[in-house]
Design a protein around this nucleic acid. Sequence first.
DNA 1: TCCAACCTTGACGCTGCGTCAAGGTCAAGC
DNA 2: GCTTGACCTTGACGCAGCGTCAAGGTTGGA
Lengths: 269, 269
Amino acid sequence: MLTISELASYAGVTVRAVRHYHAKGLLPEPERDRSGYRRYDAAAAVDLIRIRTLADAGVPLARVRQLLAADEEDFARAVEEIDRRLRAEIRDRQRSRERIAKLAAGDSLALPPEAVAYLGRLRGIGVPEAMVDAERDAWILVAAQLPGRMPFYMELKEQQLADPGVRELYRDLAEVIGWGADDPRLAGVADRLAAQFEAIPASAWDEEALPADLAALLDAVFLDSVPAARRLLALLEERGWTGWTNIRPVAGSSAPTGPHDRRGSSSMV
Amino acid sequence: MLTISELASYAGVTVRAVRHYHAKGLLPEPERDRSGYRRYDAAAAVDLIRIRTLADAGVPLARVRQLLAADEEDFARAVEEIDRRLRAEIRDRQRSRERIAKLAAGDSLALPPEAVAYLGRLRGIGVPEAMVDAERDAWILVAAQLPGRMPFYMELKEQQLADPGVRELYRDLAEVIGWGADDPRLAGVADRLAAQFEAIPASAWDEEALPADLAALLDAVFLDSVPAARRLLALLEERGWTGWTNIRPVAGSSAPTGPHDRRGSSSMV
DNA sequence: TCCAACCTTGACGCTGCGTCAAGGTCAAGC
DNA sequence: GCTTGACCTTGACGCAGCGTCAAGGTTGGA
């Protein structure tokens, strides 16, 4: 006959754990000797090892209890599922290893050098600081999610800045940040924006489209920080353009077909 | 500016988690807008991703807080340790997969057929049921730990039973179970046991020795279930033998050298 | 004006035990 | 017989990392 500590050490668990399994109904309470001590037989040791094998595999104790009472078929199905989960956890840890390795490599610098250079150019053009800050925050968000595509995006942005019309628009938009929601000048800005969207060849944009969730977030940031944003988007919609980060022609609109077939292109942030 | 839910969904966590990180001091509380809502900038998003990367790797939040404030050198050391742990967890899960696969294959049958046959032979020889039960429990414990060696052990036991002297001893020992701690007949049994130990050639035992912890457990079971056990072991020690499951000549004893060099052999259980 | 979808703080719930607390029991040594 | 140390008993609280109400205030669009 085994005492509780013998049983526990045999299965490599603590005495507390064995009592816990009793309390949870995983392991039946054994007979007591005359002093009230629990006395176990070898079958209890076998049961305990079974419990630990399942628990070590990450099965919750409540589920272990079910499985101990399950027939062979249900048990086999459960084991298959447990195995699936274990494989998934192994993959998760492998991904975690890669991610923390990148952290250690210092990849967490908020912005890559190309982006810093681009923001410097914006300042150089005369875009006000408030606008540059908004741009920086937006690009930080993008860089955190898609670091590999940043050189591509920045190259694209630099190309856009080569166009004097675009540079003009940036200065326009910077002013819009300070305007109220009903500023009469918004209509004029919307006109010029729409014209720009028309003028840019689709070929230069097609691969730029950001993932929908990231674009939605950036849109939300824009709407939250610029009072006139909502009104401006409404005006743009009247002119045949919907969205912002990923601006697109309004579906079914008679407006801008122009010379290009544009489906999902990205605006300015 | 981001709201809390935007920030959270950006990093793929819940709003509750973000607030938890504030409460734990992992993420600084941001400014509030006029209605008391938290407003985040992009830097908070970067911080949050850093936190999640570490937390996903299994780093406790309290440790994450330290690491956020650590210099590059300490951080690199920590990452190395985290990576070690991740690799260990992957190995654990691979072992778990093997173990539950065995469970599903039904390897958990308490005793292999050879052992059942052996217990049957004991009964056939006239060993009383109480003794057979004790043997069964002991072999269940061994089989759970060393399933691969069971055929070997059982083969050995069957060979021993071929000797009429051993068979006689088993019947003796079965009676001992019922004796008091000071039964006068114990000395005679000890004599016959010592003689048997002398007679068995060392070559037949040498590889049988059980791991020390398992042997200690089986000894404890013997001591706990047989009142006369402690006295019997004392008498055997007087005759030059120590232990029980793994019985050995007493070191420095003048007693049994016999024709064989015996170092660590296993008795009867 | 109303509704849905946000936001706020506070508090309890969950898992799988670890860790006291406050005792009773047992074997050994003096 | 008495002490000592290593066991055993039940009961209770503590821990991480949030999930999940509860009970409100805010915001934006219809």
